[in-house]
Design a protein around this nucleic acid. Structure first.
Lengths: 101, 101
DNA sequence: TTCACATTTCGTCGATTGGCGATAGGGGCC
DNA sequence: GGCCCCTATCGCCAATCGACGAAATGTGAA
């Protein structure tokens, strides 16, 4: 993962409202924008903006169905990011061993 | 971890230069600001600013020794953050089981 | 104490962010 | 077609960011 990509994901996660949005996610059932909005203390346009940021960072996947937009979490992206964070926390020797293995 | 804390760490990580700084870290040997600066294509004051941001997010630990400041990575912070990211990627049922176990 | 060095802080600038209300636009439903 | 619902986008504003050079601070050596 390039530093640019890692930073882009981190940046998208760098707002409490966006963390809360992700935490209110029940991954089994995609949520539409209205449901997500209901779980926030923010204006509809503000939530829509946060969703756009998470979408553009490819943390959320959006699918339009009729008038609604359904969102779900891209688990693999968060998982890869989590691994990258773990790698930052690990000593270079182990980091080398990990990428070799 | 509160959403505020998670977001604060993510925000501090949300810049490619700061990811590069962390990656150039050899954790076994603390680096001083000059060494870190040498590894960057940025003005010295800019690097100092990036170091401040990482310090304030408690991702880096700074120890002054004589005229130099030695930095090292707070592994536990990055590790906890990585776990929080993993939790975001995991379904609520498992998330519950994890925090219970 | 004077100098040189290492690092941080300050001041400035243009760019970006985050918030909101208002507006636009795409779908369904009557 | 006309109307309402759902969502995204626009325009505006204050606030923050990121970059830099200049200046200040702090420390050890001569």
């Amino acid at each position: 993962m390039t530093p640019e990509r890692v930073a882009a994901i981190a940046k998208a996660l760098g707002h409490p409202a966006r963390i809360r949005i992700l935490r209110q996610f029940d991954q089994c059932v995609p949520h539409n924008a209205g449901e997500i909005f209901d779980g926030c203390d923010l204006a509809q346009s503000t939530v829509s903006e946060h969703l756009r940021i998470l979408r553009e960072a490819e943390i959320l996947f959006a699918r339009k169905d009729g008038p609604r937009t359904w969102y779900c979490v891209r688990r693999s992206v968060l998982h890869t990011f989590a691994r990258a964070m773990e790698d930052l926390a690990v000593e270079p020797v182990l980091r080398h061993a990990r990428s070799a293995g």
